[in-house]
């Protein structure tokens, strides 16, 4: 019965509410920030190697590559859709890039452009299928393309690996600019770009509107289809950028890279406060969630915690962080 109250609540766009200090303070993001602080304290307490600048800095390079996709994934989830083909898109764009460079002998710069184009096209196909066949949900479309894209990657490279990239290509995954990892800089830049896109532009407002009520937004003149296609294309594009960083970190590529990335990414977005029921989510929260999961994994890794325990801890963290506020409000009602 407790659900009844929630479902009757009128949805309001967060961006439309008037500014208030109280609201600013009592936000999901503060809770996340507290968890992040706890994770950092925990890390420094258990491992002497954790809390120093080089360690924290290099730690980001371990988890940030897949985190790039979390931004468009958040937008997709805000629109009540989901994209589970992103891992396969990473593999396919990486394989296309590597085989163009090694087999076709094209210059690396062109191969990188081809990688980005491949990713965007994959996303475009997802988006077009979803808007052209409205009766199909995004789950089944991207499930199909998930198998298909990886299948194409297998057809291209078969059982081979492709690598031997020029020296400078390693910079993407391993390089520093003014002592800051290049990957971290790109992540920060993308966070700002997507933050502005989602929270400060009409485009972003339309994304929220679609998530809140697709039918109403269609009637009020939002071009739902166009926005959906663009967002899915963005997901493909970001998957291709991830492919560049991941390939650079591995120095070579295979059709089986980036398997099961999608679930990790969805977990990051969910922890960051993006609701799959649509209409809710902020880039700030997602960014903090990425660092929580990343640093937690890094810290537990530094004390050589078995990876299955890590699975349990992330699962428990996900449930607790979402459940505690709900339990709190349930108790209050009684």
């Amino acid at each position: 019965m407790e659900q009844k109250k929630q479902t009757y609540q009128p949805r309001t766009l967060e961006t439309q509410l008037p500014f208030s200090w109280k609201r600013l303070f009592f936000q999901w993001e503060w809770m996340l920030l507290l968890i992040l602080v706890a994770v950092l304290l925990f890390g420094s307490y258990v491992s002497p190697y954790f809390l120093n600048y080089p360690s924290l800095r290099d730690g980001t390079m371990v988890f940030l590559d897949k985190a790039l996709i979390v931004f468009p994934m958040a937008m997709i989830m805000i629109m009540r859709d989901i994209d589970i083909s992103v891992g396969s898109t990473v593999a396919l764009s990486s394989v296309v890039m590597a085989s163009l460079y090694t087999t076709a002998g094209l210059p690396m710069e062109i191969a990188i452009v081809a990688c980005l184009v491949t990713g965007a096209v994959c996303g475009l196909i997802n988006g077009l299928l979803i808007v052209k066949f409205k009766e199909l949900s995004a789950v089944i479309v991207t499930l199909g393309t998930m198998i298909l894209y990886r299948g194409i990657a297998y057809i291209i490279l078969e059982d081979q690996a492709a690598g031997g990239f020029p020296e400078w290509f390693g910079f993407f995954g391993w390089g520093y600019v003014f002592g800051i990892p290049f990957l971290l800089i790109v992540f920060a830049a993308l966070a700002i770009v997507f933050g502005i896109l989602l929270h400060r532009t009409t485009f972003g407002r339309k994304v929220f509107a679609i998530g809140n009520n697709p039918t109403a937004s269609r009637f009020s003149g939002v071009r739902v289809d166009r926005i959906k296609v663009i967002v899915f294309m963005l997901a493909g594009l970001l998957a291709a950028i991830t492919a560049i960083f991941l390939t650079s970190r591995m120095g070579s590529t295979r059709p089986n890279i980036a398997t099961m990335y999608e679930l990790d990414i969805i977990a990051m977005a969910a922890l960051g406060g993006v609701s799959t029921a649509g209409g809710k989510g902020r880039v700030v929260g997602v960014v903090i969630a990425v660092f929580i999961i990343g640093y937690l994994q890094y810290g537990l890794g530094l004390i050589n915690m078995p990876s299955q325990l890590f699975l349990i801890i992330v699962g428990a963290l996900l449930i607790l962080s979402v459940a505690i506020p709900k339990i709190g409000s349930l108790m209050k009602r009684k």
Partner: peptide
């Protein structure tokens, strides 16, 4: 219980418990 009583979204609750059950199996 997590979904019906606490009110978690099914995708999040089951994603989290997927990790937990899988980890328990290894343990």
């Amino acid at each position: 219980l997590l979904i019906a009583r606490v009110g978690l979204l099914p995708i999040i609750a089951t994603l989290a418990l997927m990790n937990i059950f899988r980890g328990l199996t290894f343990l």
